[in-house]
């Protein structure tokens, strides 16, 4: 019996070894839904140029991306926030060395229904709305209509970014409605007159993006860091990829003219 167990173990270890010695032409990407459009466009472009390379892209959220990288289930983790200390530590424990690549900038736009006359809010006002201190648009100079507060689910990188950049450690009111994606926020805000929500810059179409602290949410203001709710978008790899390997070329695509064009086309802000 013992020998049998040992044999099985050996087989499993050997099998694992085979899996680890993997194909360099296969790249698995997992992570943020916000970075998703960039990743998919990059993958499409890169596979068009190098047909022998096979890239699969999943979008399960920044946290899941980090988890996948730590579990060696993916080669690239896309994240809309930097890795937390706890995640870094878990990675070290698992023998993974996450290397950060900033691929683009993203602004979080505050969006309201197109029929809403409000133009400009301060960070403080937005925070008061989300903590539940301001409950009606008339308190902000708008029509007498209750505010429907919409947020991303606590699972998303966008939520964490909003919480860090806007909420300042205060808790959102329990009236907040949570939805599962940028597109769902846009859908809810587009169809709800009293709604306010926050989305990535790429999701402003069909809704009205507000100025924040007097600054419009545009690529220029985001890149100049004058727009207050902006953040970098990340790709993480396990260690530095070997020079000119497909993985290296893929994560450095953002620095090429084509890559910048792709980033711009997908609605984000390419780095200068």
């Amino acid at each position: 019996m013992k020998r049998f167990i040992a044999g099985t173990l050996a087989a499993v270890v050997m099998g694992g070894g085979l899996v680890l010695a993997k194909d360099v032409n296969k790249i698995v990407v997992d992570g943020s839904t916000t970075v998703g459009p960039i990743t998919k466009a990059f993958a499409e472009y890169y596979m068009g140029k190098r047909p022998e390379v096979n890239i699969t892209v999943s979008e399960s959220g920044s946290g899941n991306g980090a988890k996948s990288l730590i579990n060696a289930a993916c080669d690239v983790a896309t994240m809309s926030r930097p890795m937390k200390n706890s995640e870094m530590k878990a990675a070290q424990d698992a023998g993974v060395l996450p290397i950060e690549h900033i691929v683009a900038m993203d602004g979080i736009a505050m969006v309201v229904h197109p029929g809403n006359p409000i133009e400009d809010l301060t960070i403080g006002q937005i925070r008061s709305i989300y903590t539940g201190a301001i409950r009606n648009w008339k308190d902000l100079g708008g029509p007498d209509r209750p505010i429907v507060i919409i947020s991303r689910d606590t699972n998303s990188g966008t939520y964490e970014c909003f919480e860090t950049l806007v909420m300042n450690k205060q808790k959102m009111t329990d009236k907040t409605e949570y939805v599962g994606s940028n597109g769902a926020i846009r859908q809810r805000v587009m169809s709800t007159q009293g709604a306010i929500g926050y989305v990535g810059l790429a999701f402003r179409e069909g809704v009205k993006a507000l100025k924040v602290n007097g600054m419009e949410a545009t690529p220029e203001t985001v890149l100049a860091k004058t727009y207050p709710i902006a953040r970098p978008l990340y790709m993480y790899t396990n260690g530095r990829p070997a020079q000119d390997s497909p993985l290296y070329n893929f994560v450095n695509l953002y620095d090429t003219p084509e890559g910048k064009k792709i980033v711009e086309d997908t609605g984000f802000v390419p780095l200068k």
Binding site: G63, K67, E87, A90
Partner: peptide, 22 residues
């Protein structure tokens, strides 16, 4: 009024909730 159910909470919070993050 909007409500939140047990099932939706499990589905929505599963992603970020790991041994890693608490």
């Amino acid at each position: 009024d909007p409500v939140r159910t047990l099932t939706a909470t499990i589905a929505g919070d599963m992603g970020e909730a790991d041994h890693v993050t608490g």
